[in-house]
Computed example of a mutant assay.
Amino acid sequence: MRLFPVLLWILFPGYQAVLVVKGPRAVRGQPGGLVTVRCQYNRGFEALPKFWCGGRTWHCSNGRIVETTGSQAVVKQGRVSIRDNHTQRVFTVTMENLTLADAGTYQCGVLKTGHPDPRNSVKVIVSSGLTKQPDAPSSLNTDLNFSPTAVVNDTRFIILFLLLLLLKGLIFLSIIGATVWVSMLYQSSCREMKPDGQGCWAVTGPWSVCGRPGGSVTVRCRYEKGDEDYSKFWCREATTLETWRCSNGHIVETTWSEAEVKRDRVSIQDNRTRRVFTVTMENLTLADAGTYQCGITRPGLNLRHTVSVIISPGAHTPVLHGERGPQSVACPA
């Protein structure tokens, strides 16, 4: 059983080796004659270059023998030629004037930049015991009943592939869950020891701000030394089960500079000297109330701080029921 396609798929999510390229498992010719190999590929790969090379596994030995240019023109290199038919999605390789040294395992494949190349292995047999037919390939070469590689026909491989797909998803979800859990646990314990939040996380700020309809609120978020050059953002927090991400993207974001950026009624400006970025929401409405995040866009996991925005239409002082119990939040007069 060939496990290389499965392993490559796990390492490279974009890998599509299964059922992308298929062709004969073996072709036979005689010295001085020729063999023709027709390899079929899936829809969507018409414009990609096709190649022929020697090698037993996913690696070509001594490079590609011949390769198309992405068009249907014939390309010939020495005694080997290749031609692609975009309509039938079949490319044809012809080896002429065969010698005994031409016998071996070859690969017909599709060249995909940035991904392992989908390919099919073909064994070329050169035998002097055949009746000489120099002007025509053998019946094996003209067989158009393409069969997928043995790995696709093996039911056990299909089951293994699906199990690995499930395992990959479970591992990914476990990593995300563990990251969120550790983050929330750390912030919760730190807030109990340091009510002001300073030093708890790379981004700190107020837990809540309060404003009135038609008014404005200003949120100042601090960050640590070394994060000056990263962009800063303001967004609505997603559901309680997905607090690590923003809902519907960033509302407003800096451009890696101290210039003010404004989008509709929300603006943001970074002060790198003080390591503070300021978010202002103007012309408030009741619909603006909710949980937001001020954060830093960094490679990997973004750093962020959660802020509750309260809109109070009356003159009374609202009460915020947060992690530290009921808290009175005074709205500006």
Rank of each mutant, 00 (worst) to 15 (best):
Y106H: 03
V110S: 11
L111P: 01
L111W: 05
L111H: 12
L111G: 04
T113V: 14
H115M: 13
H115C: 06
H115R: 10
H115K: 03
P116E: 05
P116W: 03
D117Y: 04
P118R: 02
P118V: 02
R119V: 07
R119I: 07
N120C: 13
N120A: 15
N120Q: 13
S121K: 09
S121I: 11
V122F: 09
V122S: 07
K123T: 06
K123M: 11
V124H: 01
V124K: 03
I125P: 02
I125H: 07
V126D: 02
S127H: 05
S127Q: 08
L130H: 05
K132V: 11
K132L: 13
K132S: 14
Q133L: 14
P134D: 02
P134Y: 11
D135E: 10
A136R: 00
P137E: 08
S138A: 09
S139I: 02
L140D: 13
N141H: 01
T142H: 06
D143G: 10
L144Q: 12
N145H: 15
N145C: 07
N145V: 14
N145E: 07
F146H: 10
S147V: 15
P148V: 09
P148C: 08
P148K: 01
T149S: 15
T149A: 15
T149G: 15
A150P: 01
A150R: 07
A150K: 04
V151L: 07
V152P: 00
V152Q: 05
N153S: 14
N153L: 13
N153Y: 04
N153M: 13
D154A: 10
D154L: 11
R156G: 13
R156L: 12
I158W: 06
I158P: 00
I159W: 07
L160Q: 04
F161R: 06
L162Q: 04
L163Q: 05
L163E: 00
L164I: 08
L166F: 07
L166P: 00
